[in-house]
Structure formats: C-alpha cells, structure tokens
Amino acid sequence: MGRRLLVAVLQMLMTVFVASLVLFALIRLAPGDPAKLLIGRTMDIAWDAAAYESTLNELRQEMGLNGSLFSQYASWIGSLLQLDLGTSFYTDRSVAAEIGERLPSTFLLAGTALIIQMAIGLFIGILSAVHSGTWFDTVVRLLCVGLASVPGFVIGLVLLLALAVQMGFYEISSQATLSRLWLPALTMGLLGAPQVIRVVRANLLGELGQVYIQSALSRGLSSTRVVWHAMRNVLLPTITLTGLSFTSYISGAVVIESIFAWPGLGEYALNGILHKDYPALQGYALVMVLSVVVIHLMVEALYVWLDPRMTRRKKEAVHE
C-alpha cells in the first residue's frame, strides 16, 4: 500500500515537472515583449528612439528577460524549489500572494457549482432512467441537447439581465461574497448537468438490464430499493466524471468568471495574458496543474476506498 502511494506521488511529480516545462516553453515562446508593455504603448507619445532602447534594455535586465531561455527556466525552477512563485511584472507583488487571494473564490465557485451539477444531474438522471421511454425522458433529453447547444455566455448574460437588472435582487460588483455566489454557481451547474444526466441515465439503464436486477424485481423487491442497489455501481463512473468536471471548473471557468465579475483565477489568467505577465501566468498554470493532479489522485484514492477489489474496467469505462 505504502509503495503504491509512493509510486502515485512520484508519477504526480513527474506530471507536474513535464507540465511546467511545456507551460514555460509555451508562455515564453508566444510573441510580444512584456518589457515593451510595461513601458507603455508608444502610441501616447513619441519616444526618442535611443532613450527607448536603453530604457527597454534596462527594464529587460530588471525583469530577468535577457538571459537564455534555459537559464530563465532554471532560475524559475530554482525559486520554485524555495516555494517562491516569483513577482508579478505588472503589479510588482508576490504571485503566490495574488493567487492566494483568488484561489478561495475559484474553489468556492467550483465546489458549489459541482454540488448543483451533481444534485440536478443525479436526480434527473435517475428519474429519466427509471422512466426511460416516457415523455418525461424525451423532454429531458431535448432539454439536455438544448442546454448543451447554447454557449455559457448567452445563458449567463440572460440570467444577469433578468435577475440583476429587471428583478434587481442580484448585485453586480467585484466582490466574492456568498450573496453573489449562487448565480454563477447555478449557471455553471446547469451547464454541466446534462453531462451527468447522460452518464447516470446510460449507466443506470445498463445496470437495470443486468440479470441480478431482473431477478430481484421478479422476486418482488420494490423498484426504489432496486434502483438504490443499482446506483452503487453507477457511482464509480459518476465519481470519475465529478473529478473531471471539478478540474474543468477550476481551470476553465474563464468565461463564467468574466461574465459574473467573479474575482477568481480565470480573470487572473486573462489579465496575465493581456499584460504578458510571465511570472503570473506561470504561477497560475502551475497551480492549476497541481490542483488537477491532486484531484485526480484523490479520485483514485476514493476508488480504492469505495471498492478495494475494484477492477480497472469499471474505473475507466465511463459510458457517455
């Protein structure tokens, strides 16, 4: 057991290392010079060419951009080993502190959205599996298709218009307070629910067709109890999906965070790209990779805990 854990942790570290290398390369290879951005768009005033060049050079030196790509990577990794994410080019603040300010809001939003997504998904998924073939099932399927075909920003803006502007009971501000949490969380939950509904429905239908269920039914067990039994086997694919959803909520909520002015990491990444703030972007990407890897590890641990004899087959076969 201890050895397995060690292997898992080693693999995790390897993933993070490779990811850090790829991320670093990608971020640094993108065109554009962060030093030029810091001097400001030259469009405001004509700089004297010589003064511009010397200022630029001085700044690049200060920002540590003059060395080779390899030495820049080495110094980044060096400071990482001392648990230092560096200093933002744009704000001159510690990247770790900035991410630390925003990480809780992102996790809060992702967690709440996940709960909503799972609640709706499991509930409607079970109902539509149990009632498969009825008009209810058909309506649910159509709605799922509809919901899965409308982009998040449209749904987000329509909800904002209705709830903030017309009804006036949602506040638009830049604060990550609990009173502002429910709407972005609900939007994300609704957008993610169809996926869960599909997985739960398909897996549950598969289970319900199994011989043991059929015989239980013929022995006169109530259908609620039968569904309950069948659900235990639907749980594993659902957990896989939960992990995947959570990771995508943490790293990919850029659009929803931006629409609802939720001060999370998505906005931070967007700003980082806008300002070509290498340390901020690298820090963000690394934290994302770390969170995702840890979540995967936790999902794995959950499997072992739920079903120690678990076969690989069940773990990996997520029916879509």
Binding site: T15, L26, A30, A285, V293
Partner: peptide
C-alpha cells in the same frame, strides 16, 4: 494526465 491538467483556455490563447 498533463493534457487533462492543462488549462485549455490558456493553451488556446498561447
């Protein structure tokens, strides 16, 4: 694992 861990939006933007 790396690709799943990768922030897709950042990747697309880069």
């Amino acid at each position: 694992d790396v690709l799943l861990a990768f922030p897709f939006m950042v990747f697309a933007m880069v």
